[in-house]
């Protein structure tokens, strides 16, 4: 089977149709061309997203105000809940984790955009 596999331990087993698009020390993002999904490996688990959901996830994470989290002394501001409508996965992240998640998703988003630009340049039929 040429499909991305997620091992019981939560790590992603790479296949021919699955490519790593961005990695940091805290996680990794993969693209599966067979299923047209983005796999996000973060906080100990791997979640598959459609591209639209991935973009919504990035938007949700970007909208978190890190400085207000840091400045607020309430216990409830120590963690941030990230949920997406239509997705089962919910993230409960501390401030450093949110920071790392932002970095990971931004990097992945950049690579997706870069890939899009390369496609446009390389496969354009008309100069």
């Amino acid at each position: 089977m040429n499909q991305p596999q997620v091992n019981p331990g939560g790590t992603v087993q790479k296949t021919q149709t699955m490519q790593e698009i961005f990695t940091t020390e805290s996680g990794a993002v993969y693209q599966c061309d067979k299923r047209n999904r983005i796999f996000v490996d973060f906080a100990g688990s791997v979640t598959a997203y459609k591209i639209d959901a991935f973009l919504r996830l990035k938007k949700a994470v970007d909208s978190i105000d890190l400085s207000s989290m840091a400045n607020n002394t309430d216990r409830c501001s120590d963690y941030e809940l990230i949920t997406l409508c239509g997705c089962d996965r919910m993230y409960v992240l501390s401030l450093p984790e949110v920071y790392n998640f932002k970095e990971l998703l931004s990097g992945a988003r950049f690579v997706l955009e870069l890939n899009s630009m390369l496609h446009e340049c390389l496969y354009a039929q008309v100069a």
Partner: peptide, 14 residues
Amino acid sequence: MKDLLRLRTSLTEE
């Protein structure tokens, strides 16, 4: 690698 962004729409996010 497929261009997943454009598989969705030709509109840019902006």
